[in-house]
Design a protein around this nucleic acid. Structure first.
Length: 457
DNA sequence: TCTGGGGTCCTTCAGCTC
DNA sequence: TCTGGAGCTGAAGGACCC
C-alpha cells in the first residue's frame, strides 16, 4: 500500500498539496521572509534551500502525530475527520491522545475526560489499547534502525536519530527524513513529523513546529533567530512551576532568558536547571543521541474510582500492584534493589516511602512484604487515599545480580513458585493463577505461609 | 477544571565512614 | 580521644516529560 493509496479523510489530493503550501506560508508568517528555515508538509517537495542548509544538521527528531489516536483510526476509518480522543472513561479518566479535530475544541492530552466532553459533547471516546500501540511502535522503530543504529527512543511514539553515518548511503538529512516519513506512512499507515537540526533540543522544537505531518529543517546558523522569539515554555524542562519562576523575573521569551545573567537563573532555579536553561536559550545542547542501556525503574500505580479509607482494600491493591511490578521485572529480566511505596491522599498531596533491600528482587512476595511494611509504618488510621503505587528502582540485570542465600531458604522458594505462575499465565492467559486474596476478599492475605515446593521428580 | 500512568532527573537532608 | 570536613549512600519530595 503506497502513501497515496491509503484512503483517509486527511490524505492528499493535488489540490490539498497546493492548499498545504499556503498553510506552510501561514505557519512561517512569524518568521522573516528569508530566514533559511526550510519546511515541507504532507509529502510536498523539499524547499530549494534545504539541500545546502541541512549539511550541519545530522540530528532528526521524529514524532508520530496524535499517535494513540492515529493507531485507533487505522481500524476505524469511519472516525477519520471526526473529533476522537483516547483515554480512560471512568470518573477520573484523563485524555491520553486527541486527534487534531478534537484539539480544535481545545482538548489536549492530560485533560480530565469530564472537561473534554464538556468542550466537545460529540467527541468519540476510545479506550486505550497499549498492545496495539507497542506493536505499531516496534514497526516504526524498526524503520528508524534500518536507517541508523543511533536511535534513542523517548517514548512509544518519538525518537532521536543521528544520521551522520547514513549520509553517504542515503543522502542529506532532509532527504533521509522524507524517506522515513514515507516509509512510516506506507508501512504503518500513520503520519509523523520530523525536525532536522544540529542538536537534539532544536530538532525536537522543529518537529513540534512541523506538526502535523510535516518536516522542518533548522540550519545551525539560523538557530538563534528560530529560538529567541519563542515563549519560555518552549525550553525543554520548563513546565508550569519553572515558567512561573521565570515570569517572576520578567522573562517571557527564550531571548529574554538568553540575555539574563546565568547567576540570576541559578539563583531562581538552582545550579543544574539555571545553567542548563542558559545554554539551551542559545541553542547549545551538547547531548549526543544515546542508544538506551536499559530501564532504571519499573512501577505500577492505580487511582481508585473513589477515595478509599479501608486498609484491607488498600493492602489488596498493594498486593496486586506488587504482582504487576514483579511480573514485569521478570519478563524484562531485571531485579530491583529499592522498593518504593507511593501514596496520594484525597487532597492530592503525595508522599513516597522507600526501602533498599539487602539483595535485589523480582519476587512479588518480597516486594509486597516490603511495601506493606512501609504502608503500615505510615500509621494512616483511616486517611482517605486517592492513589497507591509500587515501584522497583536500582534495577540490575537478573542474570548479573548476586543472590543473597539464606540459611533457612527452601530448595524451591517464592521465586520458583512465581516463575511457575509466569509459565501458567503464558499458557492459559492472564489471571489463570493468582493469589487467593485477589480472587476472594476473605481474611487470607495470600502470603500467609511458605509456598509449596514442587514435587521432586 | 480537577487533575492517569509510566517514567527520569534533580535537590535537599540525614546518617555513616574515613 | 574528640572534632570537623569530605564524600558517599539512602530517603524523600518535586518538577517534568510523553
Amino acid at each position: 500500500m503506497s502513501r497515496s493509496q491509503i484512503t483517509r479523510g486527511a490524505r492528499l489530493t493535488q489540490a490539498d498539496i497546493a492548499a498545504d503550501r499556503s498553510v506552510d506560508a501561514r505557519l512561517d508568517a512569524g518568521r522573516p521572509a528569508n530566514d533559511g528555515i526550510a519546511s515541507a508538509r504532507k509529502g510536498s517537495a523539499r524547499s530549494d534551500n534545504d539541500q545546502r542548509d541541512d549539511d550541519d544538521c545530522p540530528i532528526l527528531h521524529i514524532d508520530m502525530d496524535a499517535f494513540f489516536a492515529s493507531c485507533e483510526l487505522r481500524s476505524r476509518p469511519d472516525l477519520v475527520g471526526k473529533p476522537v480522543i483516547v483515554g480512560g472513561d471512568g470518573s477520573r479518566g484523563v485524555v491520553t491522545a486527541a486527534t487534531y479535530e478534537a484539539r480544535r475544541f481545545g482538548i489536549h492530552s492530560a485533560m480530565p475526560m469530564s472537561r473534554a466532553k464538556r468542550l466537545c459533547p460529540q467527541v468519540v471516546v476510545l479506550p486505550p489499547n497499549f498492545a496495539l500501540y507497542s506493536e505499531v511502535s516496534a514497526g516504526v522503530m524498526a524503520i528508524f534502525r534500518d536507517v541508523t543504529p543511533l536511535v534513542e527512543p523517548l517514548s512509544l511514539d518519538e525518537a532521536f536519530l543521528d544520521v551522520s553515518g547514513a549520509r553517504r548511503r542515503l543522502g542529506p538529512p532532509a532527504v533521509i527524513a522524507e524517506m522515513i516519513r514515507s516509509r512510516v506512512y506506507d508501512e504503518q499507515a500513520i503520519t509523523c513529523s520530523v525536525g532536522v537540526a544540529s542538536t537534539k533540543f532544536i530538532a525536537k522544537l522543529a518537529s513540534t513546529r512541523a506538526k502535523p505531518d510535516g518536516l522542518l529543517v533548522v540550519p545551525a546558523d539560523r538557530v538563534v533567530a528560530f529560538l529567541h522569539p519563542l515563549a519560555v515554555g518552549a525550553l525543554w524542562g520548563v513546565g508550569d512551576k519553572t515558567e512561573e519562576a521565570l515570569q517572576r523575573l520578567g522573562l517571557a521569551t527564550v531571548g529574554d532568558v538568553a540575555n539574563t545573567p546565568v547567576d540570576t537563573l541559578v539563583r531562581a532555579l538552582g545550579q543544574s536547571s539555571g545553567t542548563h536553561l542558559a545554554a539551551l536559550a542559545w541553542g547549545r545542547d551538547p547531548r549526543s543521541v544515546q542508544v538506551p542501556e536499559g530501564e532504571k525503574s519499573v512501577g505500577a500505580e492505580e487511582t481508585f474510582p473513589r477515595d478509599i479509607d479501608d486498609p484491607e482494600v488498600i493492602r489488596r491493591e498493594l498486593l496486586r500492584l506488587s504482582e504487576r511490578v514483579a511480573v514485569r521485572l521478570r519478563r524484562q529480566g531485571y531485579v530491583g534493589r529499592t522498593v518504593v511505596l507511593k501514596v496520594r491522599f484525597a487532597d492530592f498531596t503525595t508522599i513516597t516511602r522507600s526501602r533498599t533491600l539487602r539483595s535485589a528482587t523480582d519476587v512479588s512476595h518480597e516486594i509486597y512484604a516490603t511495601v506493606r511494611e512501609l504502608y503500615e509504618a505510615l500509621g494512616l488510621q483511616r486517611a482517605r487515599l486517592r492513589l497507591v503505587g509500587v515501584r522497583a528502582e536500582g534495577l540490575l540485570a537478573a542474570a548479573d545480580a548476586p543472590r543473597q542465600l539464606l540459611l533457612d531458604e527452601p530448595v524451591a522458594g517464592w521465586r520458583e513458585a512465581e516463575q511457575a505462575v509466569d509459565r501458567a499465565t503464558a499458557r492459559f492467559g492472564r489471571g489463570s493463577v493468582q493469589p487467593a486474596r485477589l480472587i476472594d476478599s476473605g481474611v487470607d492475605d495470600g502470603f500467609g505461609g511458605a509456598p509449596v515446593a514442587p514435587r521432586p521428580r
